[in-house]
Simulated scan of single mutants.
Amino acid sequence: MFELNPGDSIPEDIARVLDGVFDDAEGRLDAMGSPNPVDVEHAVHQFRKRCKELRAVARLVRPALGPRFRDFNHLVRDASAQFSASRDAHVMAETIDSLAPATGLSPDLLAIRDRQVDVAAAATISLQQGDERTGVARELVAAARVAANGWDLPDDAAPIVKGLTLSYRQGRQSFRAAKRKPTDDRMHEWRKSTKNLGYHVQLLVATDRDALAALVVDLDALGDLIGQDHDLAVLIEGVRGTDEGMEACELARKRQHKVRKKALRLGKRIYGERPDDFAERIMVGWSR
């Protein structure tokens, strides 16, 4: 379970969570050889999620890791990146479908969608046939597990409090930057910090499950909204300058405008506290 237990040994509990995530990530790599394309696509998506979880755990205890954080983070980041192009192709096809008007896809939108479906299908077939990217990712994950096994964490909540404070501060700063000028790059930075904070609250939710329930719901909703915005930005970047890309860009920008209004409104509610106060509120039920 991706959740820490207040009162347990912190080093042992962090190790327990990491082992579970590593085991699942390795299982997802195995599943990429499935003869069922749907299973392969699901495995890619879930593997990338496990990598985000691993990086989030490391960020939470980063104050205790020092330079070891950077090495671990790079290993897991590079493992996830093996499948980013494949995932982007699937996302672009799905995003085109979501933009389709009631009358259906126009010839230009259909052309973009079909091209992305072909790219995604080719990537899936390659993985089924033992693409070298799977082997590279497996080696990187194994190296990351060895690195994590070498962490010498104190049985003290202080580094977690610092890590959580930093996580919230980064989210608050990126929210303010996006509010001032909601560019694709600023929204993407806000997305990353919000996802990270969501993982941290998920890890710490057992400190006071009832009190944190609303925050968990809000962070999930915000993550979905900013995720939609990012998918639209990926589509725009992928088709900008192409002969058939103008309509897709216009529709995507209109959708982004609506999504961003909702996201910024929700962000104001989530990021309205001082970082120290937020961390203190989250950790109030921690027994150490």
Rank of each mutant, 00 (worst) to 15 (best):
L164E: 04
A144M: 03
R180C: 08
L166H: 07
S174P: 09
N149A: 14
G163L: 00
A142G: 13
A178L: 02
R172V: 06
N149I: 00
V136K: 11
E139M: 10
R145Q: 11
Q170I: 00
R169C: 00
G163H: 05
T134N: 13
P154F: 07
R145N: 08
A148W: 01
V136L: 14
A158R: 13
L166C: 05
T134G: 15
G135Q: 02
D152W: 05
R138C: 10
A157I: 01
L164Q: 12
Y168N: 01
G135D: 12
D152H: 14
E139R: 15
D152I: 13
K162Q: 11
Y168R: 00
R176Y: 04
D155E: 12
R169V: 08
A177T: 12
A157C: 06
P159F: 05
L140C: 07
R138Q: 06
V146Y: 09
Q170G: 05
L153N: 05
Y168F: 02
R138M: 05
R145V: 08
R172P: 13
W151M: 14
A137G: 06
D155S: 07
L153C: 12
T165A: 02
G171Q: 08
V146W: 07
S167R: 04
G150D: 03
P154T: 13
W151C: 04
Q170H: 06
A137M: 02
G163N: 05
R176S: 15
L140P: 05
R169N: 12
G150I: 07
S174V: 08
R145I: 14
K179N: 13
W151S: 15
E139H: 11
D155G: 00
V141M: 13
F175E: 05
A177Y: 08
R176M: 14
V161T: 09
V136P: 03
V136Y: 08
S167G: 00
Q173P: 00
G163P: 07
L140S: 05
A147S: 12
A158N: 01
R176A: 06
R133A: 00
G171F: 10
G171S: 14
R169P: 11
E139V: 04
T134I: 15
S174I: 08
T165S: 10
G135A: 00
E139D: 13
A147D: 09
W151L: 11
R133I: 10
E139W: 05
S174D: 15
R138P: 11
A148C: 12
F175Q: 01
A142Q: 13
L166Y: 10
L140N: 00
F175I: 07
R176G: 15
L153I: 04
T165R: 06
G135M: 14
A143L: 03
D156A: 01
A157H: 13
S167P: 06
W151T: 09
A137K: 07
K179F: 15
R169Q: 02
A158D: 05
D155M: 08
L140G: 11
R180G: 15
V136N: 04
V141P: 01
A158L: 12
V161L: 10
A177P: 01
D155V: 11
V136A: 13
